[in-house]
Each structure stands twice: as structure tokens, then as C-alpha cells.
């Protein structure tokens, strides 16, 4: 393998590897945080602790194992998420909830730090290399009262807002926006109940798609015909373009080529109307094969010694 081929292979591998990376932990987002838990969600020990919700924005399962959670900017690897727990796999568009109780001995989802509501609380999620920042958020001091959360307006995207006031619910391990209907369909039902808008839009796109293909292949066809004409001019010794156009060089129809190919095929394969073979019902002599031999399929008679 020469150097050039190796280079191409290496480039492809790098591109492939970077594509895999793009599909992994980078699609995770810190989605909701609760700093002071008085009477909110309880952990599996029945304790009210602060929590951090992480949301998988992609439509593929993503594993958190090996990633890091931290509350210190200069210590990105403060809490390594254990690798041996199957529960770290977050399903598409689902959540994982971590308890910020400073008691990692209580399980995978209990981190080794806590929050202080009187100061700015920084939270960051780092990839498994401990260097690539996936997401971070700072909750300003005294922003949240007890049992209020700091959450994204839309799951995984957009601005942050305070929840637990003004009729906005705190939603641990649940979508920040409750999806109870398909918005697209509702919009069509409301604004395009007879389907005319959809039909016009969709037919325009269908026509556009095939029109773009038409233009592309018109250009490709013209280039191909021009090449064919040049070849035909070379073969027939014509040098003038106008003469070639008059003679219709390079414009031979596919039917002509089909007829020529058929004639060549008939000649080369000795295809003719009257066949030389004879149909007969006479028995054909079968050649011997060990597979049909009785001797080979019978057991040998035991010898008495």
C-alpha cells in the first residue's frame, strides 16, 4: 500500500471517528437543577437532596458512563460517572437524575459534591476524556428559593427559567414541556383543514426536486453528447463542428446500437433460427458417480477374527 492510499485511509478513519464522536455524549444537556430540596423529589433512601437532571437530546441511546460531573471550573473530573452501571444508558429523548448530596457511596447517581444556595453554583458535564466540555450552567446566587428549580424552557434547548412559581411545575425526571399532542398536526388542522396548503407546498417540492434533477441531467446529457460527438468526429475524420452537426454525428439513437449489439450477439453465439440439437426420448447414458454407488453407501459386513 503506498503512502497516498494510506493517507486516504487515515483521513476516512478520522472522519468516521469524528462522526462517531458527534453521535455520542455531546448530545447530552444539563436540563434542570434543584438546589434546595425541602419537600420535593426524594432519592431512593427517602432523603430530600439537591438534584441535577441530564437530558439526551438525540434520537439514539447515549451512555453517560465515564463522563464527569463537576461544580468546580478548574476540576473537570471531580465526579467520574461509574462505568459498570447499565442504568447510565439514557434512552432517546430521556433523562438521568443525579443527587448532589456529597455521598457517592450511595450509588452511581449520587455525586461527591453539594450546592450552596447563597453563592453562584456552577455545574458542568465533561466527556470521558475529562477535557471536552459537553454542557455547563451557572445558577446565580439566591436565585432559587426552596423547592424551586432552574430549568430549560424547552428540553435540551433554549433559555433557562425558574420553576416552582407562577404555575410552572418542577419536573424531575420528566420532560420540561409536556407533549400531549403533535404540534405539526394541530397546526395543519387549525390553518389548513382542507389540505390545499399542504398540497401546494408538497407538490412544489416534488416538482422542484425533479426539476433540479431535470436540469442536472440536461447538463450532464449535453456534456455527454458533446463528448460523443467529438469521438464520432475523430472516428470519421470530420474536423468542422458545423459539418458534424449537419451529419448528426454523435446523435445515434440507442435503437441503432441495440440492433448492432443484437447482430453481434447472434453472430458470436451462433444463434440461428434452426437449431441443430435433436429432441429425443432415448435414455441418456449416465456417468458413474460414487454418490450414486450402492457399495459406498452400504455398511461393511463385520469380519469374524
Amino acid at each position: 500500500m503506498n503512502t497516498r492510499k494510506l493517507g486516504v485511509l487515515f483521513t476516512l478513519l478520522v472522519a468516521f471517528a469524528s462522526g462517531m464522536f458527534a453521535q455520542s455524549a455531546t448530545s447530552l444537556k444539563i436540563n434542570e437543577v434543584l438546589i434546595t430540596n425541602q419537600s420535593n423529589y426524594q432519592d431512593d433512601y427517602g432523603v430530600h437532596s439537591a438534584w441535577i437532571e441530564i437530558f439526551n437530546t438525540s434520537y439514539a441511546s447515549v451512555d453517560l458512563k465515564g463522563c464527569f460531573l463537576t461544580n468546580e471550573r478548574n476540576n473537570p473530573t471531580k465526579y467520574p460517572i461509574p462505568k459498570a452501571d447499565v442504568l447510565t444508558l439514557i434512552k432517546p429523548r430521556q433523562h438521568a437524575l443525579f443527587w448532589a448530596d456529597g455521598m457517592p457511596e450511595r450509588g452511581t447517581f449520587h455525586v461527591n459534591f453539594t450546592f450552596d444556595p447563597t453563592v453562584d453554583n456552577y455545574i458542568a458535564l465533561y466527556d470521558s476524556n475529562g477535557k471536552t466540555l459537553i454542557d455547563e450552567v451557572t445558577i446565580p446566587a439566591n436565585t432559587l428559593q426552596a423547592d424551586q428549580s432552574y430549568a430549560r424552557v424547552t428540553d435540551g434547548h433554549g433559555d433557562w427559567e425558574v420553576r416552582g412559581v407562577n404555575g410552572k411545575f418542577v419536573t424531575p425526571s420528566t420532560n420540561n414541556v409536556t407533549i400531549d399532542k403533535n404540534e405539526k398536526i394541530e397546526r395543519f388542522k387549525e390553518h389548513d383543514s382542507n389540505g390545499v396548503g399542504m398540497s401546494i407546498t408538497a407538490m412544489s417540492v416534488v416538482f422542484l426536486g425533479l426539476f433540479v434533477l431535470f436540469i442536472a441531467f440536461k447538463l450532464v446529457g449535453n456534456a455527454a453528447m458533446s463528448m460523443m460527438r467529438r469521438k464520432a468526429m475523430k472516428a470519421s475524420g470530420v474536423t468542422s463542428l458545423s459539418e458534424a452537426k449537419d451529419k448528426g454525428l454523435g446523435k445515434t439513437s440507442g435503437e441503432v446500437y441495440a440492433a448492432i449489439s443484437m447482430a453481434l450477439h447472434e453472430m458470436q453465439n451462433d444463434v440461428h433460427d434452426v437449431e441443430e440439437t435433436v429432441l429425443t426420448i432415448s435414455k441418456v447414458k449416465r456417468t458413474y458417480s460414487p454418490w450414486s454407488s450402492k457399495i459406498y453407501t452400504l455398511r461393511e459386513t463385520p469380519h469374524r477374527k
Binding site: V220, G221, A224, M225, M227, M228, K251, T252, S253, G254
Partner: peptide, 8 residues
């Protein structure tokens, strides 16, 4: 129809 080349 015209003949179409392999490249096309």
C-alpha cells in the same frame, strides 16, 4: 431515445 453512456 439517444444512447446513454456508462458515465451518465
Amino acid at each position: 431515445p439517444r444512447a446513454v453512456s456508462h458515465t451518465e
